[in-house]
């Protein structure tokens, strides 16, 4: 069974962060929320593995994201 991968994997995190900020620029709160939701839906479908997604949701909803 596949598991959520949590080790650092992106070559250029700063660039991704900037892309996300750019995508949100000029959007009001509601539009921003829609954008994030769309992103999650698109990526979730790309991942296509319910167990991995469940782990991701569990990780995101942890009270303190201080690592395991």
């Amino acid at each position: 069974m596949k598991h959520l991968r949590t080790e650092p994997r992106l070559a250029d995190p700063d660039a991704l962060y900037a892309l996300l900020m750019e995508a949100h620029r000029g959007l009001d709160d509601a539009a921003s929320r829609r954008l994030d939701a769309k992103l999650v839906l698109i990526l979730a479908n790309h991942i296509g593995d319910a167990e991995v997604l469940r782990e991701a949701i569990a990780l995101a909803t942890q009270r303190r994201n201080s690592g395991a």
Partner: peptide, 20 residues
């Protein structure tokens, strides 16, 4: 508001994309 955003995100994507 969050649930509304998710609902509308689904509807916006659904028009052009089978996966949604």
């Amino acid at each position: 508001a969050a649930a509304l955003a998710w609902r509308d995100a689904v509807l916006e994507l659904a028009e052009g994309h089978a996966f949604a």
